[in-house]
Computed example of a mutant assay.
Amino acid sequence: MKKKFLSLLFLLSVAYVPLNAQIGLLNQQAYYKNSVPAGNYSGLSRIGGNRYVVVNDKPKNDGFDIFHIDIDSITGEIANVRRVGSLSSGRAGTRDGEGIAYFKPANTVFISGETDNRVLEYDMDGQLTGRELKLPSVINGPLGNYGLESLTYNAHTHRFWTTTESTLPQDGQQANAVNGIRNRLRLMSFDDNLNYCSTIDYIMDTPLSTRPARIYADGVSDLCALDDGRLLVLEREAWVPKAYLGAWVVNRVYCIDTKDKTRPAQKKLVAMWRTSFNLIHKDFANYEGMCVGPVLADGRQVIILCADSQNQEGRLLRDWFRTIVL
């Protein structure tokens, strides 16, 4: 009983992390029912201005969407989000696209697929170019629902970064709802020629869950590469009981310095928050996408996040967006 009480107390406190413990300002989440159709939005990347490419992990046809996201230049809050178009490669079905990155040198888009565990290139008409990231041999074939989840590219550092959502089989056991194991991940980088460059060992936080769940996910759901070589890592733990009521998600964004040779990587907390679905709160949001947004008038950097609503599951969930200001 004492253990359960302490666990509950900690979960309740997650939403109230002291501001001095974080280096980012977390803005309120919002949804846009009139301009964003229900979807499974799992990644986004800025093209320029207010234009972004967004990947849906369960589209009718393989491809990506174009969104316009307007940001308040003073506060960094989202003023509006709207989907303005969709582009398809012509291939039926889906690769379970999870991460997306705009590749400025070639004016193309790369998408990581969790089904095939490949990172493929598309032109701005949505067509496959035939190129892909040259993944190391440790990524060998399908890995189920814990394959390649994230993707980011930075034109200043000329580096792609990706990782699997959970621990590779050769690296140990994966976290589940009851075992309390910390996932160990490999953050992998690639250059402009799509060649593999390096790996950073990364250890996630200890899971909060201590009870079995109907649906459970604990992993890194996206990465975001900054101009100075730092990398933001989005850790997401989702716990959904059999009857859904009482479901929660805890999100943590950490910053690591990719130039630091300390292993495993040293993490610095950027922002931490909890969403839930119960009789009081209905803000449950499974954040899976994260990218660099615009720079504000005072020089601060905006980070934009999107949540996967599972096509607004049961007409209860929403396609949430929010920002963090660094």
Rank of each mutant, 00 (worst) to 15 (best):
F5E: 15
V14I: 07
V14L: 05
A15L: 03
A15M: 05
Y16T: 12
P18V: 12
P18T: 11
N20I: 07
N27H: 15
Q28A: 15
Q29P: 01
N34K: 14
S35P: 03
P37L: 02
L44Q: 09
L44K: 10
L44V: 10
N50G: 13
V55R: 14
K58F: 11
N61D: 10
G63T: 04
D65P: 00
I66N: 04
H68L: 12
I71N: 01
S73T: 12
I74P: 00
T75H: 07
G76R: 00
I78R: 11
N80G: 11
R82T: 01
L87K: 15
G93I: 11
G93M: 10
T94M: 00
T94D: 03
R95C: 02
D96C: 11
D96R: 12
I100L: 11
A101R: 02
Y102P: 05
K104Y: 07
A106C: 01
A106E: 13
D125Y: 03
G126L: 06
L128D: 09
R131Q: 14
V138A: 08
P142R: 01
Y146M: 06
Y146N: 10
L148M: 11
L151M: 02
T152K: 07
A155M: 11
T157W: 04
T157D: 09
T162S: 06
P169N: 01
D171P: 09
D171Q: 14
G172P: 00
Q174I: 13
N176C: 05
A177K: 00
A177S: 13
G180K: 07
R184F: 03
L185W: 02
M188I: 02
S189P: 05
S189R: 05
F190S: 04
N193I: 03
L194K: 14
T199N: 09
Y202R: 06
M204A: 10
T206S: 09
S209A: 12
T210D: 06
R211I: 02
A213F: 01
R214K: 15
I215E: 05
I215F: 12
I215S: 12
A225G: 08
A225W: 03
D228E: 13
G229L: 10
R230Q: 14
L231G: 07
L231D: 11
L231C: 09
V233E: 14
L234M: 15
E235R: 09
A238E: 06
W239V: 03
W239P: 00
L245G: 04
G246V: 12
K259M: 15
K261P: 13
T262K: 15
T262A: 15
P264W: 02
A265H: 07
Q266V: 13
K267I: 05
K268F: 10
K268W: 08
V270N: 03
R274S: 01
S276V: 00
I280V: 14
K282F: 02
D283C: 08
F284S: 04
Y287V: 13
Y287K: 00
E288S: 09
V292Y: 07
G293L: 00
D298Q: 05
R300T: 11
V302S: 06
A307S: 15
N311C: 01
R315L: 14
L316A: 13
L317F: 11
L317Y: 02
F321C: 08
T323D: 10
V325L: 05
V325T: 07
L326Q: 11
